[in-house]
């Protein structure tokens, strides 16, 4: 089966600036992938290339083996939600549902009505008169009622308050639980992603820096604390950062196996620290982590 999303050597330039370059990724079916990176790292560009809103300058993107947005059938498989949750502000919620129904052969009207009723969003209200959280939910409802096999969310909760964030993500995740939807969501806030996603892609300055299963990533990376000015122990695959004083050396490393050297103690690393370490690591190329070890923490 073709991957829900696969990009190969993907690049996009605006004028003389590359927003994204040499990007290769494969999203596994049923996974929930967090795409993280600082602002301007190319996250939006990558997602818009994936749904065909942008055309690549180089390389290819395919969705279930097909180029995106070239046919109605290809479009029907993907749900996309832009960061600002765009809606026709002058239309009522009911009008918007009718639009979704008219433009999507796979539309699930009962789901849309049921979900909005659950949230208490009246169909007669104009979209422009809804709160930010409600607008996000209406836009998400339009996206989900299409019944997409792949859901692409660009910074979906960035503009929402904590309660609206929670409700929004609960809707997305319940859909993933119900239908096995593959989800790719971007964010520059890493802290909330750990409980939501199972795969992580880190983009930094237009390039993929980390790509792997989160459990696997956390399992392979450690903070090592050892004596001052000590050289790193053997058996490391990669040293991401090194901070040393007279008394103590602190390393963030990717392990190749257990650290045997008794002078070093190992500590687990939070996802946020791991991401930051990669974004700061000047030598970081693309590091892809196989997903075979899912569950290796157990």
């Amino acid at each position: 089966m073709s991957a829900p999303l696969e990009v190969t050597g993907l690049g996009r330039s605006f004028g003389h600036t590359w927003a994204l370059r040499h990007c290769s990724l494969r999203i596994e079916p049923g996974s929930i992938t967090a795409l993280v990176g600082p602002n301007g790292a190319g996250k939006s560009t990558l997602l818009q290339l994936a749904v065909g809103l942008l055309t690549p300058t180089e390389g290819t993107a395919t969705i279930f083996g097909q180029p995106p947005a070239t046919s109605a059938a290809a479009l029907a498989q993907v749900g996309y939600l832009a960061q600002d949750h765009p809606l026709y502000r002058g239309l009522t919620v009911g009008d918007l549902l009718r639009m979704g129904r008219g433009m999507n052969p796979t539309w699930d009207h009962d789901f849309a009505l049921g979900h909005l009723a659950e949230l208490g969003i009246p169909l007669s209200r104009k979209a422009g008169g809804l709160s930010g959280g409600q607008q996000a939910q209406v836009a998400l409802t339009l996206t989900l009622a299409k019944r997409p096999a792949l859901l692409i969310l660009d910074e979906p909760v960035a503009s929402l308050d904590p309660l609206a964030r929670r409700d929004f993500m609960a809707t997305v995740l319940a859909d993933a639980a119900d239908r096995g939807t593959t989800v790719v969501l971007s964010s520059h806030v890493i802290s909330e992603l750990e409980r939501v996603s199972d795969h992580l892609v880190v983009l930094g300055s237009g390039q993929v820096q980390v790509d792997g299963a989160i459990d696997d990533l956390l399992d392979r990376h450690r903070i090592l604390v050892g004596p001052g000015y000590a050289s790193p122990p053997t058996g490391l695959r990669h040293v991401l950062s090194e901070h040393t004083t007279e008394r103590q050396t602190t390393l963030i490393v990717e392990l190749d196996g257990p650290v045997q050297d008794p002078r070093w103690t190992t500590h687990p690393l939070s996802l946020e620290d791991l991401v930051l370490a990669y974004l700061r690591d000047p030598d970081a190329g693309t590091r892809t982590f196989a997903t075979q070890a899912t569950g290796s923490l157990s």
Partner: peptide, 17 residues
Amino acid sequence: ESGTLRLAWTQSVTRTR
């Protein structure tokens, strides 16, 4: 300007149509 093109162009209808 309002960004709704990204809504319209990601429904199951090609841009041409």
